[in-house]
Design a protein around this nucleic acid. Structure first.
Lengths: 207, 207
DNA sequence: ATATGGTTTAACCGTTTGGTTAATTTTAGA
DNA sequence: TCTAAAATTAACCAAACGGTTAAACCATAT
């Protein structure tokens, strides 16, 4: 169904790259076809030659972004690693990925909120990560007294929230906390250690 | 500097209300002046009569949204309540406010990311909540051994993240966790209790 | 009554935007 | 080398958009 990944510098690929940049930064309506063409260094008509319409091009970009993000989540939910190790790896990976592409999660969240029906019926892949394995793992750890009782769904949501939100809200946090760009970078770099210890502390079994 | 709040059903107010709805849901570029006029039940030219341009109207809406959100944050940071009580109240209030207006935080985050310079130089109020009081409070609690050592900045960011993010990412979480709209509502309602106990657990002093 | 000033509208305008077309250039196979 | 298909472009088009204008409407004070 999906086109094979193109890695060369063909026009099609350059269009896709430019579209990815512009759409992710400006959203569907903020992005202009002319700007995408300019950034790809080709004529505007060529956009419609390879991707029929703005919507089709947009959909291609959204699909690609999703397919790059989902595997990590699947790994968190389905792999066999021990629980805490799994969580630590997840924190590490997401912070790293997201801080390299800070606009991507905001882009996805926007897309899903503005047009949920179209998104989930048309764009979203049918095969989603299955959280059952992870849920069971948490439940076992609770029963074995290794961690404080907690609903697995809330645990995973808490972790994801603390990883992603500060990067989304970076400009706001900078102002609230009274930090310049430089301090803010340092602060966000500390977060991996911080989130890990916060989660571990929250999961300590009661004495 | 700011115009006094208008609470009647004058044309100016109806335009503002309609603009608020449309801008918050669709963003600056997604919103169309004609739609705002239609929703306000008036002629399009009247938009320009009261608010000179689309940008001015947008700015008015952004200002209003900020001025509704900031006081709560100021209360968290500056009031004299005891630390944990303060945090609990903050969680309660933000979850309630945000779940009533789920698009507002996403709207603000978008605005700040897409156009940070214009936002912070032109729109943002000069008098921001001062976090020093809160920071000091956390530090005192740590020194008194009442809570586990933690950087105050990270603590507040963690709390805000766990409150706001799940509401932003609600559609995504619904899919990931395999929940229908009904279950999702119930899940989000549980979060107040959940976040509170998670934060309290994380702050328990080590034995 | 009517003059006045604020309010509201229909019609219009110039620009931008997504998209098309027809022609030109490039590529590649016979 | 010749030719047919693919790639690329300049020019163009219709619709949508933000914004303007001039006239109409309406309240109210004289």
């Amino acid at each position: 169904m999906d086109k094979p990944e193109i890695q060369d510098d063909s026009s099609e690929q350059r269009i896709f790259d430019a579209a990815h940049e512009v759409f992710v930064q400006k959203g569907l309506h903020g992005a202009k076809m002319q700007e995408i063409a300019d950034r790809a260094g080709i004529n505007k008509a060529l956009l419609h030659y390879y991707y029929r319409s703005k919507e089709k091009l947009y959909e291609t970009v959204v699909r690609a972004v999703i397919n790059r993000v989902l595997p990590v989540l699947r790994d968190l939910l389905e792999s066999d690693k021990p629980l805490l190790e799994k969580i630590d790896y997840f924190i590490h990976f997401y912070l790293q990925t997201v801080s390299k592409n800070p606009f991507v999660p905001l882009f996805l969240i926007n897309e899903m909120n503005k047009n949920p029906d179209h998104f989930f019926e048309t764009i979203f892949p049918k095969e989603l990560p299955k959280p059952d394995r992870f849920f069971q793992q948490v439940q076992s750890a609770v029963e074995a007294g290794e961690i404080k009782p907690i609903t697995p769904q809330h645990l995973i949501v808490n972790v994801i929230s603390m990883c992603i939100f500060p990067i989304l809200a970076r400009p706001m946090l900078g102002v609230i906390l009274g930090m310049q760009a430089h301090d803010m970078r340092a602060f966000l770099n500390q977060r991996e250690v911080e989130i890990r210890s916060f989660v571990h502390a929250a999961l300590r079994p009661a004495p």
